[in-house]
Design a protein around this nucleic acid. Structure first.
Lengths: 164, 164
DNA sequence: CACTTTTTGAGACGTCGTCTCAACACATTT
DNA sequence: AAATGTGTTGAGACGACGTCTCAAAAAGTG
């Protein structure tokens, strides 16, 4: 079993708050820690049911809230959906999102932490964490787009003449 | 009329794409440029109807997509809702979000642009824009929370003894 | 085991956003 | 200005996602 340390942390969080350690909560924990990608609540529900576990939609959402609250899972909206991802050791990373194919690449940048501290100091905030998404095009999509623009160029030129 | 420059840009965008300049589109443009805050689609719809304009939900969403596409409006999910805000001159700013009272503070940090360029170079991406949210507590909420934690401290101590 | 408190599941409900299609408005040409 | 062709709109059905309720079930406790 991977993520033993995080599992302990979850149990400790539950006990500290006098919450019950239930089969459903553990199953959801295991599921999200076995998925190495961004995943949404419906997918988690489907995966658990596929694995033969009887669990309700409401419980999935409730348990995800707990995991987010205790810092083991991050909820993030990339695009128009809420996605969840598990964390290890509070390791903070951010995302590059390709606007062409939708691919998401994770990256770690120590510089952001310093920037965050600096900005919060200037505004009297106590930082907890941040979320940075850089939207752009991956190499493949940038090339595709360049090619398509070149192809359409002759057609568009006539339209461009009506510019003010 | 404010935002004349941006209005021209919107008209130019529409004409270039052989799209019609309709009363609904202009009304929505004017509405979002008269609101100096983050606003969601339903609020825009309500504001337009309150102003006596007959406009449908579908048109609001369709027009917002156009405005986002032409770079005049930014769509961002702060919390669990999609919010829109108008931009001026492509001026890029980011957000501090207070987890206590939900207040949103805008800030500009030139350092992020450099960081964005650096990160994209390292991953072969062509950056378009970024979104950075720093979650934390504003001064007031940080003090409130500190006071409340202190008050609860004696109660919590007993629970803390069952730690592993 | 008995007792208290928390949790669960099923499904109704609410919100946000999308889709469809007939009627209509805009832009362009004559 | 009228005709023509194409893009746009509104009403409401629809769909995705998430929340809520409450009686039944399970976890924790002594």
């Amino acid at each position: 079993m991977a993520a033993q340390r995080e599992r302990e942390q979850f149990l400790w969080f539950l006990r500290q708050r006098r919450l019950h350690v239930t089969g459903e909560r553990l199953a959801l924990f295991d599921e999200i820690y076995s998925q190495h990608r961004h995943i949404d609540a419906e997918e988690l529900l489907a995966a658990l049911r596929l694995a033969g576990r009887k669990i309700s939609r409401a419980t999935v959402y409730r348990t995800l809230d707990l995991l987010v609250e205790c810092g083991l899972v991050r909820r993030q909206s990339l695009g128009r959906k809420l996605l969840y991802e598990h964390l290890h050791d509070g390791q903070q990373h951010d995302h590059l999102v390709c606007g062409g194919c939708g691919r998401v690449v994770e990256f770690v940048s120590p510089g952001i932490t310093a920037l965050q501290r600096e900005i919060c100091r200037a505004h009297g905030f106590s930082p907890d964490h941040h979320q940075l998404q850089i939207l752009g095009l991956c190499l493949t999509c940038a090339e595709d787009r360049a090619a398509r623009v070149a192809a359409r160029h002759s057609t568009v030129e006539a339209a461009a003449c009506s510019s003010p």
